[in-house]
């Protein structure tokens, strides 16, 4: 471990940005269970929002699990699974769930295009698009349902916020942030 790593610095940084949950590593099913328990315990005052929050964490985590360009061998799953980071932050009126993981540079343009397309759709169009995509057979290379981004956009009622930062000749770091309002109308 790098001796210059400051736990207090890390702690302060999370605190400053009001991030009350941060996990880095293999985003396994077990980790999701722990997050689920912690969220269920926390947001008892609004079960509906808690469920939305959890749904967003699951979709982001499963994106990392299936699509991260960085993999680690999971003893339990007996296969390589994606590695990344998940954070849940809290502001006065909303939660912010974010994910970060490596992607291959050649996939960056496709991801950008898909998110930009989704961000142009209004609520009704998102619904139609979701139903259309669910009816289609999923693309061969897609390991998930190919519905994650649309679902995330629908749950947040906000544009998907993302960044793609090239870090090497092969890889970029991809972050996706989803805001969920505490009060639903």
């Amino acid at each position: 471990m790098n001796r210059t790593f400051s736990h207090h610095g890390f702690y302060s940084k999370l605190k400053k940005h009001k991030i009350n949950l941060a996990c880095q590593g293999m985003v396994s099913q077990d980790l999701l269970n722990l997050i689920a328990l912690s969220l269920k315990r926390k947001a008892v005052d609004n079960e509906f929002v808690a469920r939305r929050l959890f749904g967003v964490v699951v979709e982001l985590a499963q994106n990392i699990y299936h699509y991260s360009a960085e993999k680690a061998y999971s003893e339990k799953d007996k296969c390589e699974v994606g590695v990344g980071i998940i954070t849940v932050g809290e502001a006065a009126d909303s939660y912010m769930v974010s994910s970060g993981n490596m992607i291959e540079n050649r996939k960056a343009a496709g991801i950008k295009e898909r998110i930009e397309y989704i961000n142009k759709l209004d609520e009704e169009q998102l619904k139609t698009y979701y139903k259309e995509q669910r009816r289609l057979p999923k693309p061969e290379e897609s390991k998930g349902a190919n519905l994650g981004f649309i679902d995330l956009a629908r749950r947040s009622n906000n544009p998907l916020k993302y960044t793609i930062t090239q870090v090497s000749e092969q890889h970029s770091f991809f972050t996706l942030s989803i805001k969920i309002k505490k009060e639903t109308t």
Binding site: R51, F54, V58, E59, R134, K138, G144, A145, L147
Partner: peptide, 13 residues
Amino acid sequence: MYYYNTSSSRRFL
């Protein structure tokens, strides 16, 4: 259901 992910949503369809 209390909660299901998008992948399960395909299975239900």
